[in-house]
Design a binder for these strands. Structure first.
Lengths: 149, 149
DNA sequence: CTTTGACCTCAATATTGGTTGAGGTTGTAC
DNA sequence: GTACAACCTCAACCAATATTGAGGTCAAAG
């Protein structure tokens, strides 16, 4: 036997409720709305009302931010979610899979950086011309300003 | 027999030279100076002159930024370098070792995040209450706003 | 009813990490 | 000795990601 709680189903959320349940400030919710990341409708008295789906959306936004995706890109990705119906698990999976690549890249970059840094710690090579961490900007300067390789 | 190149030893650098050799814009060098990350003295005609050590310092700044250290913290760390003499390999090593910790933490955090995301991709759990990625903000909301755990 | 907390809008402010431009000076190459 | 690139200062601006505040409205409890 399954009891359905009227609090959990069908009831629109106020901005304060969304803020409390999502851990995001009211001002941030306004901001996300202005940027097109979440949608609302208005009550008779012009107050924002949120579909419960917004909680999932906000959770996804926060995860994406942790991955390092800028809000603009998050907005683009979210805008590809189906219009009119609630996203399914499959929809969310597609997003996750997409961002996993970014995450992997970032982990890879940082790992490479750490390995180079380890070499520097081992040999003190931040003080040596041949150091791979500091050298690209120096010996290749004849190729013009800015980083090379 | 070792030839010492007068271009490489003892000659002060202009801001343009530092910019070209470090791959950092002149405006950024001014900015770093204002923030106390690098030092200069002035020529008779009020133009900046840089000790060659500044190249190493700038390289270190750029590495630290890649690690994700904000300029303020970089400034703090650099301010602990010895005053009056050029930093030794040992000095730079201490810095590297310090920042290695941050880097490892960040790699760890992102790796944990990736593992959680993998679970989400596998099970579609971004749509499920129990999901470790989206849940903290929801079921723990009675502890007050903001992330928990 | 009235009060009080939650909500509204819009503009200003904050932080980080710089870049751009105006208006003027210096230094070097011819 | 003059032209032109490189330099100077200072203020304004940029983008991202919000927060804060002023001034006003709404809604639910007593």
């Amino acid at each position: 036997m399954t009891l359905i709680n009227a609090d959990d189903i069908g009831k629109a959320l106020t901005v304060g409720e969304v803020a409390e349940r999502s851990g995001v400030a009211v001002s941030a919710l306004h901001f996300y709305e202005k940027k097109g990341l979440i949608q609302t409708w208005r009550s008779a008295g012009n107050q924002r009302r949120y579909h419960r789906d917004v909680l999932r959306r906000v959770a996804v936004i926060k995860v994406a931010q942790r991955i390092g995706i800028p809000l603009g890109e998050i907005a683009d990705a979210l805008s590809e979610l189906p219009d009119g119906r609630s996203p399914t698990a499959r929809d969310w999976k597609r997003l996750s899979a997409k961002w996993r690549g970014h995450l992997n890249e970032r982990i890879h970059d940082l790992t490479v950086l750490r390995d180079q840094l380890d070499q520097c710690i081992g040999c003190g090579c931040l003080s040596i011309k041949a150091c791979r961490l500091r050298n690209p900007y120096d010996t290749l300067s004849e190729e013009g300003p800015g980083p090379h390789i």
